Computed example of a mutant assay.
Amino acid sequence: MVAQNRKARYDYHIEDTVEAGLVLVGTEVKSLRAGHASLVDGYAVVERGEAWLQGVHIPEYAEGTWTNHEPRRPRKLLLHRREIERLIGKTQEAGLTLVPLSLYFKDGRAKVEIAVARGKKNYDKRQALAERQAKREADRAMARRGRED
């Protein structure tokens, strides 16, 4: 796992996920292998039958020379035609967007997990936060109770 977008699960209802390959240049791969990347502002779009990852920050490679890459350049996603058509159909629904969840290496190839997501309202976020806090308190109480016995 190189990078993960934890805020995406907080800000969006995840409806479906897809694994996609990435078209990268050499210095981007080296920077990713060093563990540097940020998915926070990232999103995916489908333009003219091709999927693109935008807004993802992969910093320049420290030992790179004039061949270094641009940190926030659009990167092409490698998906099958039917997967792209399915994403087009889903994103044309109102309120749905494509958000990157994680960036990782699988069998030596860079992969990104893309989610079809619907934005949460503020009250949904507060409710999710309250549920998580209640679960945490219940777990603590159970742990304390287990130690007392």
Rank of each mutant, 00 (worst) to 15 (best):
80 H>E: 13
32 L>C: 06
121 K>R: 13
136 R>N: 08
101 L>D: 06
123 Y>C: 03
18 V>L: 13
39 L>V: 01
68 N>V: 15
58 I>W: 00
73 R>E: 04
86 R>H: 13
136 R>L: 12
4 Q>A: 01
81 R>D: 09
5 N>E: 12
22 L>N: 01
37 A>L: 03
144 R>D: 13
132 R>E: 13
53 L>R: 07
54 Q>N: 07
74 P>V: 08
66 W>Y: 15
124 D>F: 05
77 L>Y: 02
40 V>L: 12
40 V>T: 13
33 R>N: 05
91 T>D: 06
104 Y>R: 12
138 A>C: 01
71 P>Y: 09
49 G>N: 07
11 D>T: 00
79 L>N: 06
63 E>K: 15
20 A>L: 08
96 L>P: 00
103 L>M: 05
120 K>W: 11
135 K>A: 12
69 H>M: 04
123 Y>M: 06
109 R>V: 14
82 R>I: 11
34 A>I: 03
31 S>V: 06
37 A>I: 01
67 T>K: 14
141 A>N: 10
21 G>S: 06
90 K>L: 15
129 L>G: 04
90 K>Q: 15
10 Y>E: 14
44 A>H: 01
78 L>P: 00
136 R>F: 09
91 T>Q: 08
76 K>A: 07
135 K>F: 09
113 E>F: 03
37 A>Y: 03
46 V>A: 09
128 A>N: 10
32 L>W: 04
108 G>K: 08
67 T>C: 07
127 Q>L: 14
70 E>T: 15
55 G>I: 05
119 G>I: 10
138 A>H: 09
49 G>Y: 06
11 D>R: 01
68 N>L: 07
56 V>A: 06
9 R>D: 02
30 K>N: 05
75 R>Q: 08
62 A>W: 15
77 L>N: 04
98 L>R: 02
8 A>C: 02
85 E>F: 12
20 A>R: 07
19 E>R: 05
26 G>M: 05
102 S>E: 13
25 V>R: 04
61 Y>S: 02
46 V>N: 10
8 A>T: 02
14 I>W: 00
114 I>V: 09
135 K>I: 12
83 E>Q: 14
82 R>F: 10
63 E>D: 14
